[in-house]
Design a protein around this nucleic acid. Structure first.
Length: 354
DNA sequence: TAGGCCATCTGGTCCT
DNA sequence: AGGACCAGATGGCCTA
């Protein structure tokens, strides 16, 4: 089977093409075409009534209203703009039925199209570094995190930056809402709970995989910390990151041991191809200079200063973060939550105690 | 109750 | 002609 390997320039282009995700809010009004603006005008003047609300009589009524508008008189007495295009035919009963049938079919297609889109988005969620079945990222947060993830990994490729570093988490959290930032930071720093590790151990017979995961600095067991639904770093992701550190790593199949989440049956292309990307000759991308991302080493990435709370409280949905974890956003209860040297050192250095 | 997110319906446009 | 795609409108659900 042929596998396409993406080089750094590909990654850069991809990240650059997603730059609109950085904008706060999803409005793209600025890109609106004149036709679309015209369409807005057509919508002015009343709510569009759906055909689930309209009986056939209502449809006829609406048709008559439309006919009346054709001779509309403007505010100054002049004739208003007439509707362009061919004059509408009278809605006969048969036409109404055909129209209705067409509409029903189109609705069904649109529904299934959107379901397909949502499935794809769900698959994307599963390869994100903090996939949680119970605390689903919203669509926009998923896209933003995906963009950040790609960008962060490209930085790893380019600069050899450690995926365990503060900067890596910083990049991942860029532009995300505070709850999502907390989720990501928590997943990457605190790693899966002992429960997950135990599960992995059970599944893997207490050898190999569990050692690998437990040995990873990112996955240091954190007694007293909440277990999912606060999200977890998938074992597969740990493996990817571990794989970045050197060629001696024994990389078992990610499908052999999962961390309690359903196995993703689709291709795991983005993370799995990372190590092979190291072998590629990296060429500077023309988009490199266009990237306006900057890592912010030294920032407290758990602080509200860095991650505005404009959408905080709405994302992610579902059970809210554990009080201890929430409190850690500001108070950093090192003795309770961060008992590993790595995490404590990291957090302590951020708050300036070292 | 307000605000965010989401699913659905809808009509317009483009393409085959 | 019909399907895919898109964006606006709407209402429901949920959480703070």
């Amino acid at each position: 089977m042929m596998t396409k390997h993406f080089g750094k320039s590909d990654v850069s282009e991809l990240v650059s093409s997603l730059s609109w995700l950085e904008e706060d809010g999803s409005s793209q009004d600025g890109d609106e075409s004149p036709e679309m603006r015209g369409r807005h005008d057509l919508n002015v003047g009343g709510r569009i009534r759906s055909y689930t609300e309209l009986g056939s009589e209502d449809m006829e009524e609406e048709e008559e209203e439309d006919d009346d508008h054709e001779e509309e008189v403007g505010p100054n007495g002049e004739n208003g703009p007439k509707r362009r295009g061919p004059k509408r035919k009278k809605m006969t009963k048969a036409r109404q039925e055909r129209f209705r049938a067409r509409r029903v079919k189109a609705n069904a297609r649109e529904r299934s199209r959107m379901h397909g889109l949502n499935n794809a988005l769900d698959n994307l969620r599963r390869v994100m570094p903090c996939y949680s079945k119970t605390q689903k990222l919203s669509k926009i947060e998923t896209l933003r995190l995906a963009r950040n993830y790609i960008w962060a990994l490209s930085e790893v490729l380019e600069n050899g930056q450690s995926p365990e570093s503060h900067g890596f988490v910083d990049m991942l959290c860029k532009g995300l809402s505070q709850p999502t930032s907390n989720l990501v930071a928590g997943c990457l720093q605190l790693g899966p709970s002992p429960l997950i590790l135990n599960k992995l151990e059970d599944k893997c017979g207490g050898s190999g995989m569990s050692d690998v995961v437990a040995g990873h600095p990112l996955s240091y067991p954190s007694p007293g910390l909440p277990s999912p639904p606060y999200g977890s770093l998938e074992a597969s992701h740990l493996l990817h990151m571990k794989g970045l550190k050197g060629p001696t790593y024994d990389n078992p199949s990610p499908n052999e041991c999962s961390s309690g989440t359903p196995p993703y049956d689709g291709p795991l292309t983005p993370p799995l191809s990372i190590s092979s990307n190291f072998a590629l000759k990296q060429e500077p991308s023309p988009h490199d200079s266009e990237r306006n991302f900057t890592a912010h080493p030294g920032h407290h990435y758990l602080s509200s200063h860095h991650y505005p709370t404009s959408t905080a409280g709405s994302l992610p949905r579902g059970p809210q973060a554990h009080p201890v974890f929430q409190a850690s956003r500001y108070e950093l209860p090192l003795d309770v939550a961060f008992d590993s040297f790595t995490s404590s050192h990291l957090i302590a250095s951020q708050i300036g105690t070292i």
